[in-house]
Design a protein around this nucleic acid. Structure first.
Length: 437
RNA sequence: CGGGGCAUGGCGCAGUCUGGUAGCGCAUCUGGUUUGGGACCAGAGGGUCGCAAGUUCGAAUCUUGCUGCCCCGACCA
């Protein structure tokens, strides 16, 4: 993409409404614009990041055997009355009436709807287990939205729902999502730690929050330091196999949010030099809630004995839009964002130091074409701004690599390559320019 | 919802106390000089000062009401 043809509104000054760094950088780097409290538009650059994250989430859900679908944002109130949550959920749920005066709601979550779909079509234990997910915009009318997309009212969420015959099977489903989450966050360049968590209004008795440590995190967390660098299963892991050893490894050491924190247990189980207490950002949350919805909604199957039994369910959420902010919180410096490779909106930033000079123009064009042909996405700064301004922009938007081409270097037959994360710079022969990718 | 704050061009701000021609920096546009780490000179465009009512000869400025946004708290992916 040529910057001269792009929509990338960069801000030099920090908008005063932005308090935390990720919010400031998202506004400054032209990723988002606010449209009202807790509701944001995603500009082209931000949208690309959101898409990249979405794709990684999707790939790992698919790998774990979950099936993607898409449910509507608007739901009928009737289903929620059936589960009893229409009254329980409170003012956080946005309620709407249609022209016929029927009660609708903008979905804050989808347990009811998916259970309704499932119960209508599945009647046999032979059709279990199943795990269905979608990646969809949710609305929760937060009392106080804040910190940009970190706590917006409208947010993009991946939510998966598992259905099993027995509690034991359901725990296997839970474990599959547990491992999928470890892999997902790892691929996103994050060190997420699963922590024992409260189940909240969704209910149930088995739940973990996936937390990344960050000073600006909203919750206080406590954990064993060794959890930070535990190894992550690679892509060869068999999701049909028993995953409980992996889960056991990750849940074997103390980790809890402040709600679940037990100071005495913490001190008993964790040596003093391994005790970590820190702020954390919740980026995922998984629940097993048994028959909490299948019973009131009468979602049953016939078991091997021909008896009708309610299915055992769990739900599994990842805050996709929040992840954009969380990644920035975890990866930035004083000059701007540093995108992990897998989520970066473009692989390479190409800086033409002297637009209009035929040699630099040609060298840039050649690299631009080669890189794209080789499958890399390139943001080509072909504007006639000054070098300093271009470098500042590139650093702010945080692409992993920058290729800098100017007449001076070309005279000696080289270009400069800069790695954003390390600020490492090297000169590369013009002839080898395609090898740097 | 309780407490605190803010609202003046795209962004950041001054002006409000003490009413009298709406300003500054950045950004944008034009021309020129420049060009290897946020250039310089000259010029230009862009704001019914959040909305409404009131006081006044006259309101960004004073009064009242409203709306929006931000921060702290309770609540939450």
């Amino acid at each position: 993409m040529r910057l001269s043809q792009y929509f990338l509104p960069i801000l030099k000054d920090t908008p005063k409404e932005a308090e935390i760094l990720s919010h400031q950088l998202m506004l400054r780097a032209g990723l988002i614009r606010q449209s009202s409290a807790g509701i944001y538009s995603w500009l082209p650059m931000g949208h690309r990041v959101l898409q990249n994250i979405t794709q990684i989430v999707r790939e790992e859900q698919d790998r774990a055997g979950a099936l993607e679908m898409l449910m509507p944002t608007l739901q009928s109130a009737d289903l929620w009355r059936e589960s009893g949550r229409y009254d329980d959920y409170g003012k956080e749920m946005l309620r709407i009436k249609d022209r016929h005066d029927r009660d609708l709601l903008y979905g804050p979550t989808n347990e009811e709807l998916i259970t309704d779909i499932f119960r209508a079509s599945v009647t046999s234990y032979k059709d279990l287990p199943r795990n269905l997910y979608h990646i969809q915009w949710k609305f929760r009318d937060e009392i106080r939205p804040r910190f940009g997309v970190m706590r917006g009212r409208e947010f993009l969420m991946k939510d998966a729902y598992s259905f099993d015959l027995t509690e034991e099977d359901a725990r296997a489903s839970y474990n599959r999502m547990f491992v999928a989450y470890l892999r997902t966050f790892h691929r996103l360049g994050l060190k997420a730690i699963p922590m024992a968590a409260e189940t909240g209004p969704i209910g149930g008795d088995l739940s973990h929050e996936f937390i990344i440590l960050a000073n600006t995190g909203e919750s206080e967390v406590f954990c064993h330091q060794d959890l930070i660098d535990l190894s992550i299963p690679d892509e060869t892991i068999d999701f049909q196999s028993d995953l409980s050893p992996v889960v056991a490894k990750w849940t074997g050491k103390y980790a809890a949010t402040s709600d679940m924190h037990d100071a005495a247990k913490f001190e008993a189980e964790v040596p003093e030099d391994k005790r970590m207490s820190a702020r954390g950002i919740e980026i995922g949350h998984i629940f097993y809630f048994g028959t909490k919805y299948s019973e009131p909604l009468n979602c049953t199957v016939q078991d091997a004995n021909g008896e009708l039994v309610p299915v055992h369910s769990g739900s599994y959420g990842i805050g996709v839009s929040r992840l954009v902010a969380a990644i920035i919180e975890a990866s930035h410096d004083e000059n701007g964002i540093i995108w992990p490779k897998n989520v970066a909106p473009y692989d390479v930033g190409l800086v033409n130091l002297k637009v209009g000079n035929s040699e630099t123009d040609n060298a840039c064009q050649t690299f631009y074409d080669k890189a794209r042909t080789a499958g890399f996405s390139v943001l080509y700064d072909d504007t006639d701004n000054r070098a300093g301004s271009k470098f500042a922009t590139m650093d702010l938007i945080g692409l992993p690599k920058q290729v800098i081409i100017g007449p001076r270097g070309l005279k000696d037959g080289h270009v400069e390559v800069k790695i954003r994360a390390t600020d490492e710079r090297k000169t590369v022969s013009v002839d080898n320019i395609d090898q740097i990718l």
